[in-house]
């Protein structure tokens, strides 16, 4: 039987992040994840979309973000795609919570959350587009509880 997939375009405005989260949760639940896991996957996708809006588009609200959902049977995959500036997530420093407090730093938490929640988070640049690919395997508890 064919699995569900969905393509969503949103304007590059943070007011649409709630919609992205709601749709992600529904799609994750439809793919078979329990409510708690679907909540966490939705948060990871919220973070990826936020990165696109704030870093790739730098707050410009006249662009679009594409979110592709795909139930691939063994895994649930979400691609978050923007046409903004090239962003190198590897430039984001690793999160050290003690240093974060002492240095009053707040950046990098989103990527850290995404990596903790999903089984795989990859970033690539193709045809002038940034593509953040998030994968959650079914049957895996993920790494968040580890």
């Amino acid at each position: 039987m064919a699995k569900a997939s969905l393509l969503l375009w949103i304007p590059s405005d943070t007011s649409y992040l709630g919609l992205v989260r709601d749709v992600t949760k529904k799609m994750a639940e439809h793919a078979g994840f329990d409510s708690g896991t679907a909540d966490r996957v939705a948060l990871a996708v919220d973070e990826a979309a936020t990165n696109a809006l704030e870093h790739a588009y730098q707050g410009a609200t006249d662009k679009e973000v594409e979110v592709r959902f795909e139930d691939r049977g063994a895994e649930f995959r979400v691609d978050v795609v923007d046409t903004g500036q090239m962003v190198d997530p590897r430039a984001v420093p690793r999160v050290d919570l003690a240093r974060y407090v002492s240095e009053r730093r707040t950046g990098g938490l989103g990527v850290h959350l995404m990596e903790k929640i999903m089984d795989s988070v990859t970033f690539r640049r193709s045809a002038r587009r940034n593509i953040c690919c998030l994968v959650k395997r079914k049957g895996s508890g993920g790494t968040e509880g580890a």
Binding site: R21, T50, V101, R104, L109
Partner: peptide, 16 residues
């Protein structure tokens, strides 16, 4: 109902 990293960052920014 939920909090994303932006909210956690707000707490981090004020705690010191």
């Amino acid at each position: 109902t939920y909090i994303a990293s932006a909210g956690l960052g707000a707490i981090m920014g004020a705690i010191e």
